[in-house]
Design a protein around this nucleic acid. Structure first.
Lengths: 377, 377
DNA sequence: CGCCCACATGAATCCGCTT
DNA sequence: AAAGCGGATTCATGTGGGC
């Protein structure tokens, strides 16, 4: 995606910029990023301190950046940065925003108001959440991410097959069970205390970027914190732009990113979607000599048959049409994938046309390798 | 709760009322219900038809009641019924609202705007959701419920121990995995077609009511549909008020509720929360002769000791105070639960004071059973 | 009666390029 | 811009019929 953008040269790629997110975002050109991941302040309305039953203090989020005078102030803040996010996003780009019940409803409503088109709400189920110490509510065991396209008509990226592969070959669901960021992954200061109160686990960003971006895409994180998004972007060979205002976080994030080793180029290749394979017109099989005119095609159970025509149509009685149209017409179906419906005979058994399509693609790839310039032209 | 309300006589209890929810709600007195469960229209905005890969048609929600001209119209609708809900709710009451990403962000924001205090967002994870047939998004495998109190200062009901018991003795989390309403539970018309497009599973309402209401509480459902809430309320011996505008749904719901057999009275008693047990003043142990003045109390490791005073205070040197205050003072802790901190000697071993509290409660219960009137007075 | 297989179905914002 | 059309896409569960 980003490779085609003329604005690329102006972009501060693979950098973590210092400043207020809206101010910094205003310096970037419109439509210049493919994906945004945002972990904004949660507006946690914690009243006083919270203690565990053993009287140790729960280190809640009480930093200054998480203080807002009221809901209206939080809404204004949210609308301001989301407006800039909308401007920066490519027309086919998507945005992820993570939050809890304190702020996610404000964010979701404002996203919709600004014209973003929600694709999913994703539940991050924490495998090891903090228990509810007072026993007055359900254990708050999840956070919510909203995944939205720039507009209703966006042709957004979703690596469906990669997600399916990641989930034992069944569709990835809207609930993801992942552990909190702990142990060595958690950045700590010289006193061993956690550097950032809400550092997100790398596994979360790994899945987000794998699902919704391509290699080389530009990913913006307006609230970079300690740099989980940049680090994962670098690991997965995406480009990143981070924005953060706290110097301590920036220093930690830059160091972290510098230490991150990008995966080998062939290691970031994921299961491709079939839609992205080059289209093979059925007629080209006849042209290439992979299938002769006059060949008989059958459905799987040999109940229906058609004859291949030299122009790539197929004929049954006085009807003629594409392999798809004829498959649909002869079965009274609303549509039909001719590549998997029709079969040809080879060695006494029936094989789907898709086998020939694969052979055609392999043949083309071979020609490309032998004479790239000629084949491309 | 409701037993103490003087408005009870005016309430149309255990009925399903016919009409627009806001109109009907306006006829009910303020502060008259303990809990509200609402399953409002989701405003799904479905476009064309959707087919499964096997070409069968998905029976989507295309009912008129789910159509709104735009987000503003949906917001107005939502604000109107939530305002009435807020008025009807007892000051310590709670509300549940279920929705999907299409509408839940509008609802959550408006709840907050109206002064409701969100307690949890609960994720209903569907064990058997409908897949995403086109492979263009993550499987939409959950719906979200918001649980909110009338105000920040509500002393709302949460049956913590019952929820814990229901969850194999670990705290109930904010994500609930429950199957869809299918099979025999799903109400069908004479043609075997589903009567209501979005009937909720009984297990969901069972847990909701068990978590947030007491036996005898009044539960309002402004969008009753085919009556899952009334049916579960009746089964669990709660009172209900249903509101529904579609005559077919009302007829089905009334029949359904009539067939519902309430559980035996002793079957709906759930694990009581400790904080609901009658409070036992430490001094009453001395009064009851369960502990003699002058008895020595120790911490678990016998490092600290105090002496029991006849007035229920404990003494260490020249300091005197409650078991809690003295526990905190002698350990430099901000607070201390004296019942579990202090131990007494029995048969050569140290037992926590809590053992005596249980014995005191048992003794009182025994007295109540022998002579109820006298003990109560 | 039990096992096996076919079939039905669920709150769904469900395609994208060419002409 | 709207239409045409190639062709990509499903999981868990319950029910019911056949054997």
């Amino acid at each position: 995606m980003s490779g085609a953008k003329t604005v690329d040269k102006e972009l501060p790629l693979d950098q973590i910029l210092c400043g207020e997110c809206v101010e910094v975002m205003k310096t970037l050109p419109s439509g210049s990023v493919d994906c945004i991941f945002a972990d904004p302040p949660y507006n946690l309305q914690l009243r006083g301190e919270l203690r565990r039953p053993d009287d140790t203090l729960v280190d809640g989020v009480d930093d200054d950046w998480d203080k807002f005078s009221d809901l209206q102030a939080y809404d204004k803040f949210t609308r301001d940065w989301l407006k800039e996010a909308h401007r920066l996003l490519d027309k086919d780009g998507t945005i992820w925003v993570i939050g809890s019940y304190h702020n996610i409803f404000r964010i979701g409503a404002i996203l919709q108001d600004l014209g973003f088109w929600i694709l999913n709400d994703i539940v991050w189920r924490k495998s090891n959440p903090m228990p509810n110490f007072r026993g007055r509510r359900f254990t708050n065991a999840h956070e919510t991410m909203i995944w939205a396209a720039k507009s209703e008509t966006s042709r957004y990226r979703f690596n469906y097959q990669a997600m399916k592969a990641l989930n034992d070959d069944v569709q990835m669901r809207s609930d993801w069970c992942l552990p909190l960021c702990t142990g060595n992954e958690r950045l700590r200061n010289e006193h061993g205390l956690k550097l950032h109160p809400t550092q997100k686990p790398e596994s979360l960003l790994h899945r987000v970027l794998l699902a919704s971006t391509s290699v080389g895409d530009v990913v913006l994180d307006p609230f970079t914190g300690t740099g989980t998004t940049p680090a994962m972007a670098r690991r997965l060979r995406r480009r990143f732009i981070g924005v953060e205002r706290h110097p301590d976080y920036i220093a930690a994030a830059r160091q972290r990113v510098a230490q991150e080793v990008p995966l080998a180029e062939d290691a970031v290749v994921t299961t491709p979607d079939k839609r992205e394979a080059p289209r093979v017109p059925f007629g080209s099989l006849v042209e290439q000599g992979l299938l002769d005119a006059g060949t008989m095609l059958y459905d799987k159970k040999r109940r229906i048959r058609v004859v291949v025509s030299p122009d790539g149509t197929v004929i049954s009685g006085n009807k003629r049409g594409s392999i798809h149209k004829m498959g649909a017409a002869l079965t009274n179906a609303p549509s039909c994938n001719g590549w998997t419906f029709w079969h040809f005979e080879r060695g006494g058994e029936l094989l789907p046309l898709d086998v020939l399509r694969q052979e055609s693609l392999a043949l083309t790839a071979q020609l490309m390798a032998e004479a790239p310039a000629a084949a491309a032209g």
